[in-house]
Design a protein around this nucleic acid. Structure first.
Length: 469
RNA sequence: GGCCGGGUGGCCGAGUGGCUUAGGCAAGGGCCUGCAAAGCCCUGUACGCGGGUUCGAUUCCCGCCCCGGCCUCCA
């Protein structure tokens, strides 16, 4: 079975057919580094990280590119307000994004181009578009002439005539130097106090859409395999990328993949976004739960569906992931060093689920059924089968970046873990003595006091185990 | 107004023209345990509303209601 992915352009799930077999060039629109990352940003990264990891697991040589938009109206505005240079704000926020992506175990992209470092490619691309008769300079601005683009609107399903009839230009009164209301800026003439770069049309800075067309081609070539991003970028951003690139004579992306947005539970039910003032930052969430729980909460649903963010979603994730962790921990203890026998977890089920448009929910069902089978093997002391099952389950978890052993730090303790363990052992021995005397009241008292300190005891066939609650 | 996507059992969340059940969480019952914890087994009979097609629809078609995304910066 080969990988099939939903393609926004054709609105169907169809085979992923890269230009060069065995190679996958993926471009995704990264963040505008204006403010700290919120849960929605990380959901995006996690969804695409699963794609990234699954491509690699499937044997593709992947080049994964995620840009950083560091030249932008809002960054310039906010930085000016804060009295700092635009690049200082951008750099600081870019670090915050990198930290958040790392925190939830997203693989680093192979390239993270910045707009500010891509100006020469951008101006060269604009020149090319002008030469080919699809853009025009006007008072230091450059606009793309949308009416010259055949098939404009195909990606987003927009009809140019309908767009024209909309009131967007009227509302924004920005018809300015444009020949046609639909035209959009490739280059904006410099304004007082704003960053600018030299260009054939005078000093200025790039428009929003052109940067991605330029950076994608820089790193992946004029035609590449897959372009991804949030559903909110389909129009106008991606539509305009297609238009520009086609105007430059580039075939551009062969497959378009868009993920769903995070909405806010309760009152509004709207999309989470900085501008709506309803966002929850990643930092805030990670003060309450471990990053692997956040990863599970954001990654367990299908990438295209809308995800409603709530405290409930987080605690559900905590329980569900806890079950997986418990199994891996128990099984690892019991099966370490055991020669693996026949696994009772189905890697083919897992692989088929991911091959079918990254069906993570189905894939997790395969994980959970492996966990259930594994727990039964553990109870039956069938260690060889358990060892094999654990291997398969962990291989699945690794693809989803949810393996408790290799991908996430053990909970709590750190350097103090051996010390705590020694202290707990004293209590455990005291309890064992009491139990030997059948002094259940005393035994329970020891256990209760440990419980009160957040330490849970479990009696197993291999002895007493303790863990943090 | 235009263009999209969605409404599934207590909750989250897959999927399908009928077959054998998604999966998880929560709940109830049982097993295990001195009691617990962890775990295993069993139970729930769902598919927004109204029509239509069909031997049969949650799944296809039409209409309606509701929710969300885009049309403006946005993952």
């Amino acid at each position: 079975m080969t990988l099939r992915l939903y393609d926004t352009l054709t609105r169907t799930v169809r085979p992923f057919e890269p230009l060069r077999p065995g190679h996958a060039g993926v471009y995704t629109c990264g963040p505008t580094v204006q403010a700290r990352p919120h849960v929605g940003h990380v959901r995006s990264a996690i969804a695409l990280d699963v794609l990234h990891r699954w491509l690699r697991e499937s044997g593709y040589q992947v080049v994964f590119v995620r840009n950083v938009t560091d030249v932008d109206d809002k960054i310039i505005h906010d930085a000016a307000h804060a009295g700092e240079p635009w690049w200082a704000l951008g750099t600081r926020m870019e670090r915050a994004f990198t930290w958040a992506y790392d925190a939830v175990q997203c693989l680093p992209p192979d390239a993270t181009p910045r707009v500010s470092s891509s100006i020469p490619s951008i101006t060269a691309l604009i020149e090319r578009i002008i030469e080919r008769g699809h853009a025009y300079a006007s008072d230091g601005d450059v606009y793309l002439s949308v009416r010259t683009v055949e098939g404009y609107g195909a990606l987003s399903g927009q009809d140019p005539d309908q767009l024209r009839a909309s009131d967007k230009e009227v509302a924004h009164g920005q018809t300015g130097q444009k020949r046609d209301a639909l035209d959009f800026a490739l280059w904006k003439a410099a304004k007082e106090g704003e960053p600018s770069w030299p260009s054939p049309w005078g000093p200025g800075r790039p428009g929003w859409h052109i940067e991605c067309s330029a950076m994608a081609v820089d790193h992946l070539g004029e035609e590449f395999d897959l372009h991804a991003g949030g559903l909110d970028l389909v129009f106008p951003h991606h539509e305009n990328e297609v238009a520009q690139s086609r105007c430059a004579g580039h075939p551009f992306a062969r497959h378009w993949l868009h993920h769903g947005l995070v909405t806010v539970a309760g009152g509004s039910g709207e999309k989470m976004s900085k501008s709506l003032g309803n966002s929850t930052t990643v930092e805030d969430v990670l003060e309450r739960v471990r990053p692997q729980v956040l990863r599970y909460a954001l990654g367990a649903g299908h990438y295209r569906s809308q995800l409603e963010w709530s405290g409930q979603a987080l605690s559900d994730a905590e329980s569900a992931y806890g079950r997986i962790e418990t199994f891996v921990r128990n099984a690892t203890e019991a099966a370490t060093g055991v020669e693996p026998g026949e696994p009772q977890a189905s890697w083919p089920d897992f692989a088929a689920a991911l091959d079918d448009d990254l069906g993570v929910p189905q894939a997790l069902a395969a994980v959970h059924s492996g966990v259930r089978a594994g727990n039964a093997l553990l109870a039956a002391r069938d260690l060889p089968a358990l060892a094999a099952t654990l291997q398969v389950v962990r291989r699945m978890l690794t693809v989803l970046a949810l393996d408790p052993v290799s991908q996430w730090p053990a909970a709590g303790g750190g350097e103090l873990a051996p010390v705590v363990d020694a202290l707990v052992q004293i209590a455990v021995e005291a309890r064992a003595d009491a139990r030997a005397r059948k002094d259940w009241a005393r035994a329970d008292e020891v256990r209760d006091r440990l419980n009160a300190s957040g330490i849970v005891l479990e009696d197993t066939p291999d002895g007493v185990r303790w863990r943090l609650a």
